[in-house]
Amino acid sequence: MLAGILVIWIIMDLLDADRGNTVVGWFHSAADWLAAWSIGLFDVAGHTLQVLLDYGIPAVVYVVIANVIAGRAFGRP
């Protein structure tokens, strides 16, 4: 779910969604909070690549963490 919020925000940002919209604003705030530790970790020239790095890295990290937790919870070796 956390990664989903980040992916939705990446899509909204890249499609230039109206940040004045309540739903878009919620996704932006949630994504900023979830990705606070990684925003600006890498400084690149293009906006698209910057958004993918700033929000994509935490999305991948959250998916990996969720898989590890699920694997341990459900007994996968």
Rank of each mutant, 00 (worst) to 15 (best):
G71I: 08
A36F: 14
D32P: 13
V63G: 00
A70F: 12
R72P: 00
A17D: 02
V60R: 10
L6H: 01
M1I: 13
L6P: 02
V51H: 13
D13N: 13
D43N: 12
D43K: 14
S38R: 09
I65G: 07
L2K: 15
V60C: 07
W37M: 10
S38N: 10
V63P: 05
L15D: 07
A3H: 04
L2W: 14
L15P: 07
L14W: 05
I11P: 01
W26L: 09
I8W: 06
V51F: 11
V68K: 12
L6K: 10
T48K: 11
V44H: 04
N67D: 06
V24R: 02
I10N: 00
M1N: 05
V63I: 14
T48P: 04
L2I: 15
L49V: 07
I8C: 11
S38Q: 06
P77S: 06
I69C: 04
I69H: 05
S38M: 12
V51L: 08
N21E: 01
F27V: 00
D43G: 02
I69S: 05
M1A: 12
D13G: 10
A3R: 14
N67V: 15
A45C: 05
R76S: 10
L53I: 10
D54V: 03
F42W: 03
W26D: 01
I39H: 06
V23F: 15
A59H: 11
L15C: 11
P58D: 04
W33Q: 07
A36T: 05
G75Q: 00
T48R: 10
L15R: 14
A17S: 10
G75Y: 08
M1L: 09
L34I: 09
H28Q: 05
T48S: 09
G20H: 01
A36K: 15
P58R: 07
Y55E: 00
A30N: 08
D54W: 00
I65E: 00
R72N: 02
V64D: 05
L14A: 10
V64C: 14
L15H: 10
G46N: 09
R76D: 00
I10K: 07
W26I: 06
N67S: 13
I39W: 04
S38C: 07
I57P: 08
V44C: 06
W33S: 13
A66T: 11
N67W: 03
A30R: 15
D54H: 01
Y55S: 09
V7D: 05
T48Y: 15
A30W: 14
I8R: 14
W9F: 15
L6M: 08
A70D: 03
L2P: 15
G46H: 09
D18G: 08
G20Y: 00
V24L: 01
A17H: 07
M1V: 14
L41D: 08
S38F: 15
L15G: 01
